[in-house]
Design a protein around this nucleic acid. Structure first.
Length: 488
DNA sequence: ATGTAC
């Protein structure tokens, strides 16, 4: 069966190099540009054939630039594949919620510390219990804090600035978030009452699915200079937070998809897939979505900020008396699901484009104006979470990203088994015990959630990372290994 | 991912 798959995929694609495969511009009628799928041969062998169709479908949207792209962790998503990158002309292009995803600004942040593995290992179980208690998790979980309507507007507009101003963080946190934790252009009047209602009680909650808070240690440094700049060294304790905009972002996406489905008809945009609903970038409908999407993006940054703040408190409670200042600095926070207006060189000219990254990480190189001062000579930290119980990677953005992928890299391991199959075929308790035997503690609200996120339902994060490393899009700086995981 | 179906 897999032989047939392989043959059909290889019949369609043209090999550009070991890690780049082209979907020819004539593969499907209506394609405006060819597709580019960045995978190694082994990852190509497990690529779902429908992903190629999704890449081709996106290539048919108006104003798309250069290529419709898919990162090495690509898999089937709503309209656009997860791992999809597409840039659209500011004037002649479109904006599409499917190119961002339901979990707007799902993303990940990494926090470093002065602690070493041996300092934490003896108290790990208690530490995880306290983190699990301090950070609400699971579907529909409610926050420890209640925002007023005015505060919710401030979160939507000012993002992490609001949090720092109110004592939930340090000034240095701002510059270490992509977009300083605050994308400009938010308009809360474009967010429905329903989305507000869902978002208000959820700020500072982890959610469910692949979202997690993980206590880790730096296992390996590949790039001494970059690791030093990022404040990372072998044996050091770090923690990582992976989550998004919860019900707020989901509702914002749902609301505007409905409006943009109508708009696609109004503007007579031919859609090979209804899930690609979109509108001309400059239209009121597209701009309304964008303004609401920015609200959700800023909400997600605050969400991760609050979780970090409470996790810092827990770490202090455990280790401050003995170790003093723990140096719990934010290394960086990246968005995985967002659309941004960026400047890119296209055919020798600088152009403004709406870059849609859905399950893809921005990976700007050294010298780019959007990189914080202390990382300016290194490149943007690119944080790639592994699946539960497996390694995560820190990379640095490199110049090839600007040439090949509109400054983008992969975002994670990428699923190979659906949630439903995983629940049927795997048992959470067994996986939890298996991880325990490897010294990894998992705290979750339900065993079935552990099954859905088992290591074997994901591709290997190291295979995925090797592709972007070998292409020179983003190169490896350090690897971190999990010690304990808090999950929804 | 998601008050995992209004």
């Amino acid at each position: 069966m897999s032989d047939e798959n392989e043959t059909s995929i290889l019949d369609i694609l043209t090999k550009v190099n070991d890690n780049t495969w082209e979907v020819p511009g004539n593969y499907k009628p209506g394609m405006n540009v060819p597709g580019r799928i960045f995978v190694s041969k082994p990852l190509l062998d497990i690529l779902e054939p429908e992903t190629i169709d999704q890449v081709a479908n996106v290539a048919s949207l108006p104003g798309i630039q250069k290529y419709s792209m898919a990162m090495p962790d690509a898999h089937l998503g709503y309209g656009f594949s997860i791992g999809g990158v597409a840039a659209f002309d500011k004037e002649k292009g479109v904006i599409s919620p499917g190119g961002v995803g339901f979990d707007i600004n799902c993303g990940v942040r990494l926090i470093r510390s002065n602690l070493m593995e041996d300092d934490v290992r003896p108290r790990l179980a208690d530490l995880l219990d306290s983190l699990f208690e301090a950070i609400p998790s699971g579907v529909g979980s409610k926050s420890r804090m209640r925002l007023t309507d005015e505060e919710l507007d401030d979160v939507f507009i000012h993002g992490v600035n609001w949090a720092v101003k109110n004592g939930y963080g340090m000034k240095g946190d701002l510059s270490h978030c992509e977009s300083n934790g605050m994308m400009p252009g938010a308009d809360p009047s474009k967010v429905s009452i329903k989305a507000r209602k869902r978002g208000r009680p959820q700020i500072g909650t982890l959610g469910s699915g692949n979202h997690f808070l993980e206590v880790q240690y730096v296992d390996k440094v590949y790039d001494e200079e970059a690791a030093k700049a990022f404040g990372l060294k072998e044996g050091q304790i770090t923690f990582m937070i992976h989550c998004g905009s919860r019900g707020a972002g989901h509702q914002i996406c749902t609301d505007h998809l409905q409006k943009l489905t109508q708009a696609s008809k109004k503007y007579k945009i031919p859609l090979p897939d209804k899930q690609l609903a979109c509108a001309p970038a400059s239209s009121e409908e597209a701009q309304d979505y964008f303004k609401a999407m920015v609200c959700a993006a800023n909400y997600a940054w605050v969400n991760r900020q609050m979780i970090m703040h409470w996790a810092r408190e827990v770490f202090d409670e455990f280790f401050k008396a003995q170790h003093g200042d723990l140096g719990l600095d934010l290394v960086y926070d990246v968005a995985h699901n967002v659309a941004k207006l960026e400047k890119h060189m296209i055919d020798g000219e600088e152009k403004e484009v709406y870059v849609h990254r859905k399950g893809a990480t921005r990976a700007f190189p050294a010298g780019h104006p959007e990189i914080p001062e202390d990382y300016k000579n290194i490149g943007q930290p690119v944080i790639i979470p592994g699946s539960m119980g497996t390694a995560s990677y820190v990379l640095k953005g490199c110049p090839a990203a600007m040439e090949l992928t509109f400054g983008s890299a992969c975002h994670g391991a990428g699923r190979v088994m659906s949630r439903s199959s995983a629940k049927k075929e795997l048992r959470g308790e067994e996986i939890q015990n298996e991880l325990k035997s490897q010294g990894i503690i998992v705290r979750a609200t339900q065993p079935s959630l552990i099954a859905e996120e088992a290591p074997e339902v994901y591709k290997s994060s190291s295979d995925v990372v090797d592709v972007v490393h070998n292409l020179g899009i983003a190169t490896k700086v350090a690897r971190v290994l999990p010690m304990g995981v808090v999950k929804g």
